[in-house]
Simulated assay, not measured.
Amino acid sequence: MLILGIESSCDETGVALVDASGHDTPRLLGHALHSQIEMHQAYGGVVPELASRDHIRRVLPLTDEVLAQTGLSLSAVDAVAYTRGPGLAGALLVGSGVACAMGMALGKPVMGVHHLEGHLLSPFLSADPPRFPFVALLVSGGHTQLMRVDGVGRYELLGETIDDAAGEAFDKSAKLLGLGYPGGPALARLALEGNPMAYKFPRPLLHSGDLDFSFAGLKTAVLTQVKRLAHARPEGPATPQLAQALNVAQKADVAASVQAAIVDVLVKKSLSAIASTGLRRLVVAGGVGANALLREQLNAACQRQNVRVHYPELHLCTDNGAMIALAAGLRVQAGLLAPSGGAVAYRFDVRPRWPLSELAITAL
């Protein structure tokens, strides 16, 4: 079964073709991705209307690119999968609309996929795929969650963020340092030049006894430190002028220290989840999963405890069509998603807010 996957939930347009024939792990045949980073940099963040319009421009050329990579025609596709949610409503509607139009034109079924499930299962496309069951650390955008995963659609939430997620802590701290968009990768690069022990930032909920996360207090601590370094009034607003008052060395030390705090929490909570479940396998997925320090510290900690840790390939950590096609293929193989054609299947809808926990109790 050849599944064409379309991802358009935010600021990346991704298209991929996956072979989900038989009961083997679906195999990636080709994929193409366009990032909107350059377009959004001028605004310091994602502009939803611009994102939606750019998806419209990119999705069909990217589809042609994938088909050229594989040497296949569109008529060879057996089903089209798209990101149904969560994400930006307008951006999701582009992928949904294109997928349903393709399905109707070809007389092939379409399948709506949960964006976070795509990230969660993406390591199955890696050279070192995991095996069920495992603990998953899902760190993508506004989501930071620990889950027990016993199979496709069999997810138990162990802990999640109660306010800011890890990705938001990276991005908001980067903004305070005047690093622009996207903030997380920029902060990680600057952190390489700094001292991670320069400032003692809090590790929220590190000793809470549960597996929940909280990073809002860390952001406040970073703001307080930046104001102190800038000799600004503590009660004053967070303005771009604060970052301008810091020299490069000060910014690097703040970046290194805040990264160390975030990574420390993620590593310790992940190890606690491993201990509480008794499992010996950890999967890390989502954009923050590409962070080099996180991988380094998780690898070292898991090796000491004889725990296998798995990541998606670096180019599959960001949003991409491959993970969407993969998730659809794995759900079909598990009997949780039965693709069927017809008018009802082409009545597309999207779910901008869609808890991943719902997938554990209902099929898509």
Rank of each mutant, 00 (worst) to 15 (best):
L190W: 13
L138K: 00
H115F: 11
D212C: 15
A216S: 13
L205E: 10
R154P: 08
F132K: 10
P130Q: 06
T161Q: 00
F215Q: 01
L116M: 12
G141C: 12
F132G: 11
S140C: 14
R189D: 08
M111F: 10
H119S: 04
L176A: 06
Y199F: 15
D163S: 06
L176V: 05
L187N: 11
H114G: 07
L121A: 07
E160H: 14
H207I: 08
M111E: 10
F134V: 06
G142A: 15
F134C: 10
E117C: 02
P133K: 03
L120S: 05
E156P: 07
L137Q: 00
L158I: 04
G178D: 08
V152T: 04
G153M: 08
L125H: 05
G183P: 09
G183R: 05
Y181Q: 09
P185L: 08
E156M: 08
P129E: 01
L121N: 06
G167P: 07
D128H: 09
L146H: 08
G194I: 12
A188R: 03
G217Q: 05
A136E: 02
P133E: 08
G217P: 11
P133Q: 06
L190G: 15
F215D: 00
K200G: 11
R189W: 02
A127V: 04
A165V: 00
F201W: 14
M197C: 15
M197D: 14
N195A: 14
H114F: 07
L206D: 12
V139L: 00
L211V: 08
V149G: 05
E160P: 02
G153F: 13
L190S: 12
I162Q: 14
K200N: 15
G141T: 13
